[in-house]
Simulated scan of single mutants.
Amino acid sequence: MSENSNLPALSKQISELVLAGSLAHAEHAFSEAVEQHGDLAVVEVLATLAPQVTALHLSGFDGGKTSLATLLVPPKAWADSLAFFAATWSDDMIEDDPERVAETLFAHVHGIVFSADEPERRQELLAEASATDHGATVFAILFSMAPKEMLELAGEVLAKGPYITSQTSSDSDVAPLAIELAKASEDGWDRALFELFPDFRHSGDIADAEYNDDPDEEQKFLQRSTKELLYRLRKQVPSSRSNVPKRGVRKSIGTGIFS
Rank of each mutant, 00 (worst) to 15 (best):
S59L: 08
K65Y: 11
L68T: 05
G38Q: 05
V42W: 02
V109Q: 14
L46I: 04
S90M: 02
A87G: 09
A83N: 09
D62G: 08
A47G: 13
A69Q: 06
G60T: 07
L49V: 01
Q52P: 04
V73F: 02
L23K: 11
E35G: 06
P75C: 10
A47W: 02
A79Y: 02
A102W: 03
V42D: 04
G60V: 01
S81F: 04
G21P: 00
K65T: 08
P51I: 00
D91K: 11
D92L: 03
T88A: 10
W89C: 00
A41D: 01
P75E: 13
G63R: 12
G60I: 01
L82P: 00
P51Q: 05
E27Q: 10
T66V: 08
D39R: 13
L58C: 13
W78V: 05
F85M: 12
V109D: 11
G63D: 06
E35P: 01
T54N: 13
V113P: 07
P75W: 07
A50V: 01
A41E: 03
A77C: 04
T54A: 14
G38N: 10
D39F: 12
V113W: 07
D97E: 15
Q52L: 09
E103N: 13
A24G: 06
V113N: 09
L82M: 13
V53K: 12
L105Q: 15
Q13N: 11
I94R: 00
L40T: 14
A41L: 05
L23F: 10
T66A: 12
E16M: 06
T48I: 02
H108C: 07
E95F: 01
L49A: 01
G21M: 00
G64C: 05
L71W: 10
A107C: 12
V42F: 04
L58S: 13
S15T: 15
G21A: 00
K76E: 15
E99C: 06
A87L: 07
A41R: 08
A55E: 13
A33D: 00
A41N: 02
L49T: 00
A107Q: 14
T104Y: 11
A50G: 02
G111I: 04
A87D: 14
P98S: 10
T66N: 11
V45T: 14
E16W: 05
L68K: 14
A26R: 04
T48C: 09
